[in-house]
Amino acid sequence: MGLLFFSFALKNIFRNKWRSTFIIILLVIGIFALLFSEASSEISGNLLDNVINESMMNSSFGVNDNLSSLIRNQSLSNSDVNSIDAGVLANESSSLDSINMSNIDEYRKEMTKGVKMFFFYLNLFFVFIGSIIIMVAMLKAVGERTREIGVLKSIGWTNLRVSGLILLESLFQLFMAWFVVTVLLLIFYMTNGHTINETFVNTLHMNISIVYRIFAVTFLTSLFIPIIGVILPLLRVFRIKPDEAMRY
């Protein structure tokens, strides 16, 4: 019984190649958008770490405080920064220095948190936009199948079962999109692997586990796209009466 359900979903995908290809392409674009926003979040967080680390080093040796004033300009009213400056001016006292260190540390954390927050919302934004695009595509696809939905309901399929079928179909499409993304990334990695290692691991001091995390987060977030994307089409399934659906 589950088998027929699965093969039904798969057949609906494979026997409507154009529609499925279209939706999968949309999903792939959505996943890449998510990937970039997630990666930027990690990279900028990392960059910021490095920049502030450097500025901290420089300030405490009193060689160059360009970077610390740069940070100050970004948030003038920040009392932390003022105390950093105070520390820089009075850098002969070692006890003050250790206080500065912890202040800078806190400041860095704040800053990194802020940047990550920003990208978190950017991520949400992509999920949202992606979902809307998929929703429109699904609405159209479900709309085309109104008659079929009417038939299924008329032979006694419950709303839940019909919805399950549609949800399963979009999850299958998501798996295929994941597959496509993975293959594309692998191809990219195999042709540019050296550069990636250079950039991410050596220059940005990124741990390889962070790279894995980026992918994990992206794939998990992208799970929401088809789920949010089918909500409206499913509401339609629930509302429509079988006889009405079959008049289409």
Partner: peptide
């Protein structure tokens, strides 16, 4: 139910179409 238009599901074979109403109440 039998309708004027056969209303078969185009993506399923005849056998699968006939199986559809049994779905959920009978073993596969």
């Amino acid at each position: 139910f039998i309708f004027q238009l056969h209303n078969l599901i185009p993506n399923l074979t005849c056998l699968e179409n006939v199986e559809l109403p049994l779905f959920g109440s009978v073993k596969s």
